[in-house]
Nucleic acid binder design. Structure first.
Lengths: 189, 189, 189, 189
DNA sequence: CACTAAACGAGACGGTACGTCCCGTCTTGAA
DNA sequence: TTCAAGACGGGACGTACCGTCTCGTTTAGTG
């Protein structure tokens, strides 16, 4: 029962994602996702033998990957540390705001989120920190500031502001630049 | 259909919480929670007409409140800013580590968490920042540092470290003190 | 999960019977029978926890009972041995000919029948023989003929002619009387 | 789509028969029978385009033929009427008792049988009667007894006793001889 | 002191979705 | 060409819950 057709798997993931975007997680049945993908229910279980649970898990993982891939695409050609962070923050904020699934889920199942106390964020932190490291290495830092610690610090702050901008309007490039300068880099450079 | 018996409502919430702690969210049925509470299924719907959804929502809200209540109990009699943050970090870290439900859910349904991009954290941030404000007002701050901004900054960092301690061992009071001094308060005081 | 409602059970049996009459055994699903009975599929399994298999078995048993009940009604007030057998043969033949389910099954699933080699017939034989016994006891028998053996013999012949009339037209009272006289009772009285 | 390989067809029938003997009709899938025959499922549908239904029907027909062929082999060299009937009854009784499929089906799906009211038996009756006819023609009959009628009568009795021996032990040659003499031939010779 | 009203247990029922099994069709590739 | 291998759509199965409803039984509270 091997998965012969990678493209079909992708189509199923996309279809499931669309269903969640429309109706939320709880109201998305395997049947819904199947017909959205133009596929029989049996095939769903052929590709995801773990059933609904595995399917949802795969969709989350898939979308998580897509999100950071796009984030990477948006910032990878930046030349300075400031530019990376600014563009990253702006893109992430816009992406989150426009993210269909997140917005639907926030409305229909808010209790599923808000669990910032998770351990998953550790991975994400390292991902971001790792990405920022080379930029920090080519940047002049204040005396006594270690690159690794600075990267960790920046990752935490970026992740925090991505989810909760607070008083800053991340759609405004000027404000973002100001935020990066006075809040994020102030203690480092 | 008024809820005559507040104590019974509490018992139901507690029972549901216990079930989730044992079997995870997905594997907890209304029936399970009912018999755990020593109550008929009909009564569940009398107290939570919204059904399973409302019940789960209520449990999350209830446990969220309990968590921060205990956190408050753990730190409210601290006298200095450093002490508040240190005790808060240590308590929160221990509480999360020992939190039955979180640990079960992390094992059985990890995809439900990890959504740090949430908007829920905004509320939590304000809660923490608001709590820290009076301590900051009675603390000597570096020139140019505004209390509101400092509180926001501290709240973000505290929340970040609560979920992902990184290289710090939050069970070790010495390390916590060090973390607070060099990472959290360094740019403020 | 006791069966509280005997009438509902009856309704389900009747509905299932009707479905079989229309579409045959193989093409009758639990769903079909359920909607025919105006009942949900879940209820089907509440009344017949053994599922489709138990349901079909119950229908056969039920209809078997009904058939012989009606046969009994048709002959129980006969006064002579000849009359009992004649009326029984004529009723049974007509009933079989008009029996919706049998005719449908004969057309759609003939391989299900024809298994005359069954052991079930033993019970039926005894049933018929037992019913005929009192009539034989009040009838003058040829010398050396034992009632029990005569009853068994008659039961066998009656059952045989019910299913396969051969050259006799069992719709014609005259022929039936002739059959009974020259074939069935010839060796006995 | 012609059936190129008669031997393969036979193998499939035999394999299917074996499966039914092991697990009953309902629990025998086309897949089971295919792998028992060492054949792919696709081939099953080449040989039996009507699918499972046609396959089962063919197996019944095939086994029906085999049964009467063996019955014929067991009695065809008998010389007297009594011998034919005695040997036939004894063989049939033993064959039925030892018949794997019948015994399995009787245990797992008794409701499939017991339908003695079938029309199929008409054919079988004629078969048996036809076979007995020459023996009757060479036998001295009581006055007024017509061969055709006697053959029909004997066929009915034989078929009846094959399925339901009643008080006779058909494994005992003495009893069988007695049965044939006093019950079957008494009214004829 | 009955009499009523509410809370609650018990459970039948319709309904939805689950995961599984099997059927019958079709395509592909190897002998 | 024949066959094995297997992906796929489709349909039914039996199970598990859900949410609604109706009973009957306490348990109070009131006229």
């Amino acid at each position: 029962m091997a998965i012969a057709n990678e493209e079909l798997r992708e189509r199923i993931l996309h279809a499931t994602y669309d269903c969640i975007a429309r109706w939320g997680v709880a109201r998305t049945s395997v049947e819904d996702a199947a017909s959205e993908a133009g596929v029989s229910r049996a095939t769903m279980y052929r590709y995801f033998p773990g059933g609904r649970e595995q399917l949802l898990h795969a969709v989350v993982e898939w979308e998580y990957g897509r999100f950071f891939q796009r984030l990477y695409d948006a910032v990878h050609d930046a030349s300075t540390l400031e530019e990376v962070i600014e563009r990253g923050l702006r893109y992430a904020h816009r992406a989150i705001a426009e993210h269909e699934v997140l917005q639907v889920v926030l409305k229909t199942e808010p209790e599923l989120l808000g669990v910032t106390l998770s351990g998953e964020s550790a991975t994400t932190l390292e991902l971001i920190a790792g990405f920022l490291t080379p930029y920090l290495e080519h940047h002049e830092l204040r005396d006594g500031v270690v690159v690794a610690e600075a990267a960790d610090y920046l990752a935490r702050m970026v992740l925090s502001y991505m989810g909760a901008p607070g008083r800053w309007d991340l759609d405004d490039p000027v404000q973002v630049a100001e935020l990066v300068r006075v809040e994020l880099l102030a203690g480092i450079v």
